[in-house]
Nucleic acid binder design. Structure first.
Lengths: 218, 218
DNA sequence: GTCTATATGAAGATAGAC
DNA sequence: GTCTATCTTCATATAGAC
């Protein structure tokens, strides 16, 4: 455990209580770390952003690493929570996949979703455990969600995956939904994907999967 | 231009001449920046790695930013060159796509390919122009290569893309080939994807596309 | 161009009063 | 817990001799 004597259970989302200034520090750290990454962020920026003094920062977190860890873990938790808001009803697989894809992209392409990806990847050498947490909280959870959906469709005979495992299909789906738009946004941060671009991409991806696996038992 | 009086045309790959120590500096900078990113890398590391003094570094590059820019541009050029080594013959689309996918993954999952991606993304806010260069040199070139291949297959009636544009199909293909294994390697740098994992993934992806678009005119 | 030595500033972290 | 003031280290960059 790398925190100090916080009231308990840190969470940026305010699930739980933390003395006022500690929360301010954590929120400030979130903003600064997500914007600048670990190395380029300074404790001065965080302190200033939080409106507290340096020693208040260090009263709550033993050092910069601990603060970073707290922020990233908290973001991963929030990310997973956002994913679990994705709901779908069985039947009408094509529509369901489209909705799921759009909702997933909403999270992935949100400012904090994008920044979390960037920072987790950038710091994977220095913070390997955080990178693992990120993978499990994001890509892995998403693939699991899609796999559950596909399992239902498979049982009802709506789809036929041939020799490809259901998990592999789910994994391919989430990767394909995410990758190109995310990469474009990461490399052109000033030109976020337009709503039309997103819609076209989702349509193309869903069409690809329906052409390949749709049409039921063969 | 951010370099100083180099003999001419910097290139890490040794295309061209640069006074001995300047090349040493650039090679050292490559190693250090790709390993640590921009902020965590220090000119001390580079100087030590190159076996020269601080002032030798600054005799050739006006500052740390210029050195970083030179390194990343050079890596992007090398990346594109590696991609253009991908050759394929028309006909036998499925085999050709598999070969292309494996060769592409070879480049993307190489230590320098992976590091370039990580650093370009991590520093896209501070060096937007470099991020653009990276996107064009990597993902964009790859998609173009695949599009050219698919155009041939489409003309010969080997495939039918329905309402989806050829460029979109090519883009989806390279993204799907890359994304999952790259992300796994980025988040678990100590467990590179195994040969079997790569083979399975490529098979699944190629199968997906052949099921969706193969079988010729419909 | 290249070196040694150094100026200058900034960053992480702490001391000690309240 | 919180502040102001400060310690210490280290990073970028330069000066000046050869």
């Amino acid at each position: 455990m790398q925190q100090r004597n916080l009231t308990e259970h840190v969470s940026l989302s305010g699930e739980t209580e933390l003395s006022g200034k500690a929360l301010k520090v954590l929120q400030a750290a979130r903003k600064v770390f997500l914007a600048h990454g670990f190395s380029a962020a300074t404790t001065d920026m965080i302190q200033r952003e939080a409106g507290v003094s340096k020693s208040t920062v260090y009263a709550h977190f033993i050092n910069k690493e601990a603060l970073f860890t707290a922020v990233i873990k908290s973001e991963c938790t929030a990310f997973t929570r956002a994913l679990h808001n994705i709901r779908f009803q069985p039947g009408r697989l094509k529509e369901t996949l489209s909705i799921l894809a759009r909702t997933y992209l909403d999270v992935v392409l949100s400012p904090s979703g994008l920044a979390l990806y960037r920072v987790a990847i950038a710091e994977s050498a220095r913070f390997p455990a955080l990178a693992h947490t990120f993978y499990r909280a994001g890509p892995q959870v998403s693939a699991r969600l899609v796999a559950d959906l596909l399992a239902g469709a498979s049982q009802s005979g709506e789809v036929n995956f041939g020799d490809t495992s259901l998990e592999a299909v789910a994994c391919m789906f989430v990767n394909l939904v995410r990758s190109e738009l995310q990469l474009q946004y990461l490399t052109y941060p000033d030109s976020p994907p337009s709503a039309e671009q997103i819609e076209t991409w989702v349509t193309n991806v869903v069409t690809l999967f329906m052409r390949a696996y749709g049409g039921g038992d063969k």
